[in-house]
């Protein structure tokens, strides 16, 4: 087992193994998305207050979960990269940044589309919207810093530190913004005791959450493979691989 992980951390083996995983991840992601959309759009009952427009939550909520989850993954991979100097962890951290920023953007856009009929405005300075916006800025900062530093290993280590500083700050930002203003509806899934969400709405939500996670892992592997090839372009195995295609 340990030997497997050790091998996985070497770029060459990672490239080979991840190539086998991607089709299966894609298939699973496709299946969960279909099931989630079917349950969410056709089976789940209409909300007594919000009508059918609440259904955007099956995209919005998983995207918002992913936005925070990916930031944690990015910082975690960053720490591993900083402490043990594992190249692959650095690659994972920076590849996560772009995907995380996209999910954050998606959460903001879907939230704003939902907000127009519900709140009567495209944008409200609500606490959770605002902290999501600041999260997007944090992601963009990480990406900007990575692009600005020329040497990619130095860049990866610098962005890891930035991600760590961000992780310390995210709870502080979250609570400060929460205190500043709140309009957003309270959490309905993670409340203590029974969730106040209908079971027929919860099932598609969880299905979509799994689909989003699978999608993230798949795209992460794809991005990481490209990054690996770029960084290792002068090594023998990449030369060999490329010459096979010619």
């Amino acid at each position: 087992m340990l030997h497997f992980f050790h091998k996985l951390a070497s770029p060459k083996h990672f490239y080979r193994i991840s190539g086998n995983w991607i089709p299966w991840l894609g298939l699973a992601c496709f299946g969960f998305t279909l099931a989630g959309l079917y349950e969410g759009l056709l089976v789940a009952p209409t909300d007594y207050q919000q009508g059918d427009s609440y259904r955007i939550m099956f995209i919005h909520v998983p995207a918002a979960w992913m936005s925070l989850f990916i930031y944690m993954v990015m910082a975690g991979a960053g720490v591993i990269g900083l402490v043990w100097r594992i190249k692959l962890a650095e690659i994972m951290a920076i590849s996560s940044a772009h995907i995380g920023a996209s999910f954050t953007f998606l959460a903001l856009i879907t939230g704003s589309i939902w907000g127009k009929p519900m709140w009567g405005a495209w944008w409200v300075w609500d606490a959770r919207l605002t902290s999501e916006l600041i999260l997007l800025f944090l992601y963009l900062g990480v990406i900007a810093l990575y692009n600005a530093v020329e040497d990619s290993r130095t860049a990866a280590r610098a962005t890891s530190i930035l991600a760590l500083v961000g992780v310390v700050n995210i709870p502080i930002i979250h609570f400060s913004v929460e205190w500043w203003n709140t309009l957003h509806q309270g959490p309905t899934v993670t409340k203590f005791g029974a969730p106040s969400i209908d079971i027929h709405m919860l099932i598609p939500l969880l299905l979509m959450a799994v689909a989003f996670k699978l999608f993230y892992v798949m795209v992460l592997l794809m991005r990481a493979r490209v990054e690996v090839l770029q960084r290792e372009r002068n090594t023998g195995w990449v030369q060999e691989l490329v010459s096979d295609y010619e």
């Binding site: 600005a148 610098a158 500083v165 961000g166 700050n169 400060s176």
Partner: peptide, 27 residues
């Protein structure tokens, strides 16, 4: 410290630091 070696550190610096200033500004 993160941007000191960069040629155009100034704008990137503000992108990096501004979100981190939010709690201070709010309180």
């Amino acid at each position: 410290a993160l941007t000191v070696g960069l040629r155009k550190g100034g704008t990137i610096l503000s992108i990096l630091v501004m979100p981190l200033y939010v709690p201070v500004l709010i309180f």
